[in-house]
């Protein structure tokens, strides 16, 4: 089993404030890994370290400082490593896009930063616009896009250089259900292609919908980790799904001698109802 990401006893500070306090994390390659935690738990700082934005020991200004512990990305130290930068893509929490440039120009700039040029750059930009379903808005200024479109572009910009590991830092902030559904589909597609995805969020349902493995992080420490199914567990109760009226099922079970069983109609999530009513097609109107 190859390891995409490994952190051992990682301690990170921002200024004088300890943010990550002995983090242990092991992400196997090819997994869809959820990093779940409340605001201020240390998720974004951990991502900064993975993305090579930290420094070791005393560092100037607001950069995170790794005080102790080990951090490896694809077996390499990510700090100041161009090799790691080339092999990971990060979708930042903020919409880090040039608002006064067009969609295509943003993609060209971010592709160019990774050394893409010529036909390869053009091809990757086309691919990214297709992925984000923004081909028809190629020449539109980013400032004229809706929040959902900008989020999709934010994702696409991180994929131009075909990273092996994709790190998503709360990528669905402020998007409508259609765009979120589209982002999920895109991420599942990328995962099926074999990419490792590290997905941080504080939305539990997103982790349940996407991730195979989950680590719950709080106060800069992993407090629970494992495959999603194992983590959620059975809790000594079983769930039976069947079609039909709940009362009729209850009667049938009683007649068959099953007692102590409560049958309730399945409650759909509000999101599923919303998507059924409004459809799954992306909304392209400007804000």
């Amino acid at each position: 089993m190859s390891i995409a990401l490994r952190a051992e006893s990682l301690v990170v500070r921002r200024g004088a404030t300890p943010v990550v306090n002995g983090l242990d994390l092991l992400v196997p390659s090819g997994r869809f890994f959820g990093l779940l935690g409340p605001n201020g738990a240390g998720k974004s700082t951990t991502i900064d370290c993975i993305a090579g934005l930290a420094e070791r020991g005393a560092a100037p200004g607001g950069r995170p400082r790794i005080m102790s512990g080990t951090l490896e990305v694809l077996g390499l130290d990510p700090l100041g490593s161009p090799e790691v930068s080339r092999r990971i893509g990060v979708v930042p929490q903020a919409l880090a896009l040039y608002g006064d440039l067009s969609v295509a120009e943003n993609l060209r700039v971010f592709g160019g930063l990774y050394g893409l040029r010529g036909p390869r750059l053009r091809g990757r930009v086309e691919w990214a616009m297709n992925l984000a379903e923004l081909t028809e808005r190629a020449t539109s200024r980013v400032s004229s896009l809706s929040g959902g479109m900008a989020r999709r572009l934010n994702l696409a910009c991180a994929l131009l250089h075909e990273p092996e590991i994709l790190v998503c830092d709360e990528p669905t902030t402020g998007v409508d259900p259609q765009s979120r559904n589209h982002l999920f589909e895109a991420l599942r597609h990328l995962h099926r292609e074999g990419r490792t995805i590290l997905y941080t969020t504080h939305y539990l349902e997103e982790v349940e919908a996407l991730c195979e493995d989950v680590a719950i992080i709080d106060h800069g420490r992993v407090i629970a980790v494992g495959p999603l199914a194992q983590l959620v567990g059975h809790g000594g109760r079983s769930r039976v799904t069947c079609d039909g009226d709940a009362e009729a099922v209850q009667r049938a079970l009683a007649e068959a001698g099953f007692t102590g069983i409560a049958v309730e109609p399945e409650r759909r999530t509000l999101e599923s109802v919303f998507l059924e009513l409004t459809g799954r097609a992306l909304r392209e109107e400007a804000p």
Partner: peptide, 17 residues
């Protein structure tokens, strides 16, 4: 302004030093 929007951070994640 680019720094405030997180663009500096994003650029710094690329292999550009």
């Amino acid at each position: 302004d680019e720094r405030a929007l997180g663009l500096d951070r994003r650029v710094a994640m690329a292999p550009v030093g």
